[in-house]
């Protein structure tokens, strides 16, 4: 989901706090402490504490029962996890999911935004339809698309056989390349609305005068898009990249519904799921989950720095 810069217009709040209205600054501080307290307590108990427990568990030997005492083993679980061949293949597979998803989401999101960012008759309705796939559970997206790819009575096979493109039905999801592409297709179906919304907001933030002035100077629509829209859209592009990347790394539901945990399409989170809950390697699964978390965090920070370097 959306992540991005939090430094922004503190101006309005500053104005409120800047001058002391009958002691309202101190009163405000007290109210503030009271209001953020539930969030802090919640974060501490349900996110930070489990995170610490998780890191600690990942540094100890795997034990068959959860409460049994375990020996400290350092990074052994991490190295063991990385040694599994299925970890390597699912990591590579996940990289493919991320790259393919971004390769579709970014251009398609830009195209949709270019289409919808200005007002026209019926735009409200089109926007409502646009966000619908994002609102649906991704399990259901998988269910809705599943029959399309079914080898026996699938709609895709039927259409292609009838058109004479293929001679006989093809088992699409058994073919690694096709399966990857179709899973990405289902994933993009659900994510594209969000990416498009990010770009629409970015385009709407560009003042119309800029376009008007450049039109006077004789700029063509393509030149306007290339030299005005794209550079000014950089912050939105970073947000879209973060949203697209994080969601693609976390891909799970669509694959589970379309192809189960089959090795040929297994994502890294599926591998975590398998190691932890199917193979019962709890500590090792946690180690792998933490590694995935570190990579995700590093990528998000990397994108943010890309933005900072370009704008400062």
């Amino acid at each position: 989901m959306t992540t991005g810069s939090t430094s922004g217009t503190w101006g309005s709040a500053r104005r409120l706090l800047g001058f002391d209205l009958t002691g309202s600054a101190r009163e405000g501080a007290n109210l503030g402490r009271l209001l953020v307290l539930p969030a802090i307590a919640f974060t501490a108990v349900l996110i930070i504490y489990p995170l610490i427990v998780g890191i600690n568990t990942s540094l100890h030997e795997n034990v068959p029962t959860i409460n049994a005492p375990a020996d400290f083993v350092g990074l052994e679980n991490y190295t063991n996890a990385l040694k599994q061949p299925s970890v390597g293949s699912s990591a590579v597979q996940t990289v493919w999911y991320v790259l393919l998803a971004l390769a579709i989401e970014i251009p398609a999101g830009l195209a949709i935004a270019a289409l919808l960012h200005r007002n026209f008759r019926g735009r409200g309705l089109v926007m409502a339809v646009l966000i619908l796939p994002w609102a649906l559970p991704s399990v259901v997206s998988g269910v809705l698309w599943r029959r399309v790819f079914d080898p026996d009575s699938g709609l895709l096979n039927s259409a292609l056989v009838q058109l004479g493109v293929i001679g006989e039905p093809h088992v699409w999801l058994a073919d690694k390349g096709w399966a990857t592409l179709f899973i990405v297709c289902v994933h993009v179906w659900g994510m594209l609305p969000l990416v498009a919304l990010v770009f629409i907001a970015g385009m709407q933030a560009i003042p119309d005068d800029v376009y008007a002035a450049s039109a006077v100077d004789g700029a063509t629509p393509w030149k306007q898009f290339r030299h005005i829209t794209l550079p000014l859209l950089l912050p939105s592009l970073v947000v879209a990249l973060v949203v697209g990347t994080v969601n693609a790394i976390n891909i799970f539901d669509e694959i589970y519904v379309l192809n189960g945990t089959a090795l040929n399409t297994r994502s890294i989170l599926m591998e975590v799921y398998n190691q932890t809950f199917i193979a019962g390697q709890f500590a090792q699964g946690l180690a792998l989950a933490i590694l995935v978390g570190l990579v995700t965090g590093a990528l998000a920070i990397g994108y943010a720095m890309l933005l900072r370097r370009r704008t400062v």
Binding site: T43, I48, G54, T57, V246, N250, L286, A289, A300, I301
Partner: peptide, 23 residues
């Protein structure tokens, strides 16, 4: 405090969920 709360967004849900499962 705000930064700490927001930084937790970067932690993938799964890392927390596997740990929470144990708890």
């Amino acid at each position: 405090l705000l930064w700490i709360v927001l930084a937790t967004m970067v932690i993938p849900i799964f890392t927390i969920v596997v740990a929470l499962y144990k708890l």
